[in-house]
Design a protein around this nucleic acid. Structure first.
Lengths: 194, 194
DNA sequence: GTCTATACCAGGATAGAC
DNA sequence: GTCTATCCTGGTATAGAC
């Protein structure tokens, strides 16, 4: 494939940005690990910022579409649960990029401010929907808390690697639902845990 | 007071580190805002790293003591609730420093690695206690999620400044308890929200 | 498409006068 | 205790050969 190198750069950069941070990762480090030089890197990506954007854009796009769809979604318990699940799946699919957003805010803010602003705005809309129609202040707080619960998937995946992904998903979904005060789903015959 | 300047530097630095990030804040910026020069700043704090440590140490000390006390605490529902509350209060008391820890991980990791490692270890012990004796995997995940709920106090305080702190506290405490599956406290006659 | 070499700049840190 | 002036490192980015 023609753009093999470009892709490899993206993959390596994502990994390094996520583990060491955006500012803490030098282009030299990325180039070294890819097996090329800094100058070659610049041939494929015009700047460090552009590289970051190329990495982050796919997640943002998907997230944006998801939030757009919310506008038409009715706020029923089952639907809320579906949305939480979809949200969680998106996060797990873009695990690394999400972790970057969550843990490296100041760096991303100075590097790609407008993108962060949009991400924050999407988060606000998501929360407004989750809080339901005509929400109390407590409802809004709970909506925030619920999304934080989903967020803990990122930390959990790292700290508890032995947890199978389905169980992680199910547990966090129940937890988020509990925060929002949703009725529990049927107890499912062989449910795990004491 | 003799050390007035030193204190003012700390206050300004904390504010800037929290809003713009550690790496993104230059010593010149801090000095400017305090109304002195970089060189004077170095008279009070021997390095940027030392300044960061001076800012972060109080929180870490308090946190450490709290976790120490957990070793002797029985894992009863009321006690779990108390611990969650204490945890939340500590966070709210050190709001800014906490936000720094939560949102600027990579920078802090490279600047004060060992401190971050200890903080992470304290978090692990906290979670181990929260998960209860002989926990299932799901219990551990829930413990993580519960602490994340408390964490959302930081974001909530910024995004929903109109929420009075008591209500924020009570709502998040209930939410965290719900995540852990604790029995609800008595419905409290004039409970807010719809 | 990849290289070597280099310009350029910002930020942390120090020396030494006052 | 505060200042001016300077050093030094390291990082982004570019020029131009192969």
């Amino acid at each position: 494939m023609v753009e093999d190198t470009k892709e490899r750069i993206r993959a390596v950069a994502l990994a390094l940005f996520t583990t060491h941070g955006y500012e803490q990762t030098s282009l030299r480090e990325i180039a070294d690990r890819v097996g090329i030089t800094k100058a070659s890197l610049y041939y494929h990506h015009p700047s460090k910022q552009a590289l970051l954007i190329a990495i982050v854009e796919p997640l943002l796009t998907e997230w944006r579409m998801m939030v757009e769809r919310l506008a038409a979604a009715p706020h029923t318990p089952e639907h809320v649960r579906d949305v939480l699940g979809e949200c969680l799946d998106t996060m797990l699919r873009h695990r690394d990029a999400c972790a970057l957003f969550a843990r490296d805010v100041p760096a991303l803010l100075t590097a790609v401010g407008p993108i962060l602003v949009e991400a924050k705005e999407l988060g606000t809309r998501m929360n407004a929907w989750l809080a339901g129609p005509d929400p109390s202040l407590a409802d809004r707080v709970r909506a925030f808390a619920a999304t934080e619960v989903l967020n803990s998937a990122l930390a959990s995946a790292v700290m508890l690697p032995s947890v199978p992904q389905d169980e992680l998903r199910a547990t966090l979904l129940d937890a988020a639902a509990a925060v929002l005060g949703l009725p529990r789903t049927e107890p499912a015959p062989g449910r795990p845990g004491g």
